[in-house]
Design a protein around this nucleic acid. Structure first.
Lengths: 232, 232
DNA sequence: TCAAATTCTGACCATTTGGTCAACTTTTTT
DNA sequence: AAAAAAGTTGACCAAATGGTCAGAATTTGA
């Protein structure tokens, strides 16, 4: 029974808010060990997957970084893939949310510059998550087929409609929406994914707050002006 | 002696033009087996490294894809890292060359749009190379420290000067050069690195020639107009 | 043609990998 | 307090990994 419960929980599990699932009828104190250890494992896994990729990552290294024995890691996540999926699920929520609320009634300059800023700051705050996402796509996204073909695809269609409406109203040039979104994603995530390159090129040290601000400014101005969007 | 010769050749070796090194005093027919097999290994390695990353790639899979026994792969490349370095070296020449010849005497609109087009078409023609490069940077670029800190850094400094000169002459807005180059690299390489995502978002099939043309047009217009560069 | 050089490759090896599992320990529930 | 549930973990395992190497096979050059 313990074995079955463990396998059912792993795939769709969230990093936080797990205390209720194993003991719905227990006190608020229950499941804290579980939640804490899963968080440790996932935090360690994020580092290992970001640096080694899925295939190069080892459960041994994840366990070592989590400060737990490998068999203990397997107690909570039955397979390496289960860990990976849990980490990826945790990342996906980060990606779409920032642009979720933007509608055609918003001001293009404001909406896009806020989106760009939010994305760049995500690169600053969650570089490992960004790198894992990039790795997953680069290797052909076997884990993300559904997400890409449904969630993201629909999201892009929806926001493309917003961009087209803006163009219809003369608020921006009629730029190809999907490709503009690609350009925004690529340039904003670049500061996480290619951080090693940016550091080396800019000044051999970690990127500063100024660097991220300059990134926001550069991308924002190029995108807004490039799309004929008036500011102010 | 054979062992020493083999080790000395592997690190800096090019994919082609190897026929002279092992037998400088031989006929032009010498070394063809070597050259052919090395090309097969490197071609196979490009696929495996692109899909699995450095750490996830195995010499067994490279050998299988090359159609050679694993020990035979080791005969030509002593270690997995030697294969990887040879593949990376082969990629680096691709990256800087397209912008090498641009000087301040060139027309910004022409130079930049040509650069963007060349980069996008590189993504189209050499997606695996782009993904390997991305993987290497994502994992912290241990192999590329020298290249990043010297070659690329100097190149960026040089071309930044070109962009600044253009701004001085009023040919473009004073945009932060390095960040503009980041934006161009990120958006153009996106079509190789994130191809799985682009395919899913656009139409669930391989990217078409039209897709790449649209990419060129979108990036070019956004960058040129966004930088206040007049066309024609 | 023959010797030298190059190439090929099966077998081998120490180490590592993603797990598995039983026994023990700790925590929670009755 | 005792039983049940949850958590811990050393030892183990089959398979895989990046090599190594001696001998055989092929190619090259005199």
């Amino acid at each position: 029974m313990t074995e079955d419960v463990r396998r059912e929980e792993a795939p769709g599990e969230l990093q936080n808010g797990d205390s209720g699932s194993a003991n719905a009828k227990g006190s608020s104190k229950t499941g804290q060990i579980r939640a804490r250890n899963k968080a440790r494992i996932m935090s360690a896994a994020e580092e290992v997957f970001a640096g080694k990729g899925y295939d190069g990552a080892t459960t041994a290294e994840i366990a070592l970084k989590a400060g737990l024995p490998k068999a203990n890691v397997h107690y909570y996540f039955s397979t390496k893939e289960a860990i990976y999926r849990a980490v990826i699920d945790n990342i996906l929520d980060l990606w779409l949310e920032p642009f979720q609320r933007i509608t055609e009634d918003d001001d293009p300059a404001e909406a896009l510059s806020m989106y760009i800023r939010t994305k760049v700051m995500l690169s600053r705050d969650r570089p490992l998550a960004s790198r894992i996402y990039a790795n997953e796509i680069i290797r052909g996204a076997p884990i993300l087929a559904d997400y890409l073909g449904k969630d993201l695809r629909e999201w892009v269609a929806e926001k493309s409609e917003v961009l087209r409406k803006w163009a219809d109203k003369g608020l921006m040039d009629p730029v190809e929406p999907a490709h503009l979104l690609f350009l925004i994603w690529a340039s904003t995530q670049h500061y996480a994914d290619f951080q090693a390159q940016a550091k080396a090129v800019l000044h051999h040290r970690d990127l500063t707050e100024d660097d991220f601000e300059t990134a926001v400014e550069t991308i924002t101005r190029v995108v807004l002006k490039g799309c004929g969007i008036k500011t102010g």
